[in-house]
Design a protein around this nucleic acid. Sequence first.
DNA 1: CGGACGCTTGATCTTCTTCAATGCAAGTGG
DNA 2: CCACTTGCATTGAAGAAGATCAAGCGTCCG
Lengths: 239, 239
Amino acid sequence: MPTLPAALQATLAERSYVLDHAITARMSWPPSLLLERRDGSCLGPTGPVLHFAVDNQVYRQGDKNRSFYKVASGVVRTCRVLNDGRRQIDAFYISGDVFGFESGAEHRLAAEAVSECSLIAYRRNGMEKLAATNDQVAQQFFSHAMNCLERTQEHSMLLGRRGAVEKLATFLLEMSSRQPGKEVIDLPMTRQDIADYLGLTIETVSRSLSQLERDAVIELPTVRRVCLRNRAALYQLIS
Amino acid sequence: MPTLPAALQATLAERSYVLDHAITARMSWPPSLLLERRDGSCLGPTGPVLHFAVDNQVYRQGDKNRSFYKVASGVVRTCRVLNDGRRQIDAFYISGDVFGFESGAEHRLAAEAVSECSLIAYRRNGMEKLAATNDQVAQQFFSHAMNCLERTQEHSMLLGRRGAVEKLATFLLEMSSRQPGKEVIDLPMTRQDIADYLGLTIETVSRSLSQLERDAVIELPTVRRVCLRNRAALYQLIS
DNA sequence: CGGACGCTTGATCTTCTTCAATGCAAGTGG
DNA sequence: CCACTTGCATTGAAGAAGATCAAGCGTCCG
């Protein structure tokens, strides 16, 4: 998914929802949804643009499911936690991604700000009415659900059957594919977040990264920045 | 999900598709879809009833995605395998469940017969045309996709953050909920299948079951039959 | 400068896997 | 009907991967 030009980003922050993901919407993982027309008018009944500080919750597990959201800037994670504190992060969402799209009356996953971020809220019942009358919107919703499903299935394979280093390799390539063109990846999330996404501990994440650096597959110029030195090796790791 | 009366099962095998899952379709995991009208007429363009012997493949990873299927009898598994042979089973499908519902041009998961089974095939392009003109069908498809998504997300939590015994406890309760009323569960799949579903090895599955039996939580009258002696203990395990 | 926070690294421990042997039930052929 | 094979399943012992526990390090920020 192409990142938006800075000017457009700025406009976005000003509550003008000009986006053009029509082409990419169907094919790519990032759960993008075309919620705006080309002329900039809004397709559905939106709520306000919301701002969240790091680690603030957009909604909790069990919260009434009234809205879903599109990331205007920043990064969001969705996750589930067991009552003994173990956490599984389901996905990370970056600029342009849509999350919080669930069918039940309550959110089954929590959503939290990984970094400072702004979100556009979409009222769920409004959008559902819209989908009922607008086939294209309904199609978009369906498409979005299927994309999420396929990605989650892929994630299950990862969690169930891959070792620590393989998990990290997969993660890095996934992150890379979402910041295309860039050879140096920015990791907006903590090691704990990565660990909870991959079903590992922070220590194992750290060790696996060090391992990859020792093997000259990656470089870690700073702690939150990764340079993929040997993509082929990474691809081979995930076989 | 209620099992069908024997007479109805027989009729079904004769290519008459009288089913009535309308009420359960929206709420339960088993991915049920209402593909037949109450009067017995078929809602969409179906293919034939197909029969598969144990371990036969309904379709492979990469096969053209032309149909999806409803289980008339028997059990089916969907899975992905890595090229070194590691396998992750995504789900088991029993009588009444719909599987093979994907949006891409090719199947990303394989589907195989766990036991001898018969399936009703539905042509994908026909159903898509139908969905485009029939809102109720489109709604069913969407609903189905969301159900699958939620179940897969739950499964991710299991794979990433639960220990062996917890995994088994979850699995047994899940199986139990799909054979409601029965205190003795039939496991139609092998230990290897269970292992690949839970991200474990057969040995660990076996040991965990023995463990649970030693703790008087379950009983194993035969190797493929489990009796839940202490449901409360199982629920507590999954906390 | 000092503290807080997140990250790394090492040592040890646990859990699960791997390897190998045995058991058990169903099916086959003498 | 009974040996014999065959295909799961169980069990034990050894090993490995990852978790846990415990320092230390770096960087950011007051």
